[in-house]
């Protein structure tokens, strides 16, 4: 295991940021720490980097106990949400920083920085100051700077959080490709489930300082451990008190086994999809159907239909009644 985090506790005053967190991160993997803000994911990343000291528990990096090591001696690359560019240094000097600290020969530094700038497509910007770069370019510079020292692990704290939607998507794809080229064990923090599903091999879902579930994107989507994970990873609705994905609900024209009567409140056409809002036994349910089936059933507000979960519907492994995040 590249990173082995074991029984970590961390409090800030009365606030419990990490509560008995244990997670293993495989060599060469690309892992997302996913969860709502305040869930402890950034704190966990900073504990791994040595920027926060845990109250108890251990951090092992590449088999060595790093719990007591200062950040200088953990050999991790860290990328901050707001880039943390060294404002008074050129792009070249920023990337060279870690190598200069390690007193590498000038020629080696020059060659390595050139390679890295090519890798992040900034070779033409070597002499610019960070203030002359766009947000996306600054973040790529920060990434090259972190990679320059050949870190054991690369840690990224909401790396795309400060960028606009378009650049965000581009960088996402680019990070995935970069990882396939460089193969350094990478952990990134995000609160965007789409980003996590898109980029990561492995997702660690965190909330309230605890780990809710660890798994591949498919595992999490298809076999969510609980209501929280299910509702965080995609759209959900509640039928008869149980959480279900809106596209896993079937609408029928007549009564059938397992189906309950519902009245249509509203039909919203969103291109190919149709969102049908229902009232079932006094509570709101919404269903996602195709345009075809909506037309076949002649859905309009006031009409009566029958609704049931499909046979293959995804259910949380541990159903619970009402989690606070389920409504979101």
């Amino acid at each position: 295991m590249a990173i082995d985090v074991s029984h970590i506790d961390k409090r800030f005053g009365d606030f419990v940021a990490l509560d008995d967190v244990t997670v293993e991160i495989a060599d060469g993997s690309l892992t997302a720490l996913l969860g709502p803000s305040g869930g402890g994911k950034s704190t966990l990343l900073r504990v791994i980097a040595g920027l926060e000291q845990p109250d108890s528990g251990t951090v092992t990096i590449n088999g060595n106990d790093a719990t007591k090591l200062p950040p200088q001696r953990r050999n991790v690359g860290f990328v901050f949400q707001h880039y943390a560019a060294f404002k008074h240094m050129s792009v070249f000097r920023n990337v060279a920083f870690g190598l200069e600290i390690r007193k590498r020969p000038k020629r080696e530094i020059k060659q390595r920085v050139q390679e890295l700038l090519e890798l992040v497509h900034l070779e033409a910007f070597a002499d610019r100051l960070p203030s002359q770069l766009s947000g996306g370019q600054r973040q790529r510079m920060a990434l090259a700077r972190a990679l320059a020292v050949q870190p054991n692990v690369l840690l990224l704290d909401e790396p795309f959080g400060a960028l606009d939607a378009q650049v965000r998507k581009e960088l996402r794809v680019w990070l995935r490709r970069l990882h396939d080229e460089v193969h350094v064990t990478t952990v990134f923090v995000t609160h965007d489930q789409e980003e996590a599903m898109d980029v990561a091999d492995e997702i660690v879902v965190m909330a309230g300082g605890r780990i809710e579930q660890i798994g591949s994107p498919d595992e999490l989507y298809e076999r969510p451990a609980n209501d929280f994970v299910m509702s965080f990873l995609g759209p959900v609705t509640r039928l008869n008190g149980r959480l279900v994905r809106p596209h896993d609900l079937e609408l029928l024209a007549s009564a059938a086994p397992g189906a309950v009567e519902a009245s249509v409140v509203r039909v919203v056409r969103l291109g190919f999809e149709v969102r049908v809002e229902l009232l079932v036994n006094g509570s709101d349910v919404w269903v996602q159907v195709t345009r075809d089936s909506s037309e076949r059933l002649e859905l309009h507000s006031g009409s009566t239909v029958y609704v049931r979960a499909s046979e293959t519907a995804i259910r949380p492994a541990v159903p619970s009644i009402a989690t606070p995040a389920a409504s979101g």
Binding site: A49, L51, R73, A85, K87, H88, F97, I101, V149
Partner: peptide
């Protein structure tokens, strides 16, 4: 953050002060 970035890149506290904080 700039100082923390310098630490993770291996700079000691005096090096960080001289190369990052003081110029800023």
């Amino acid at each position: 953050e700039q100082e923390q970035a310098a630490w993770t890149l291996g700079a000691s506290a005096p090096q960080t002060f001289r190369r990052i904080t003081l110029p800023a």
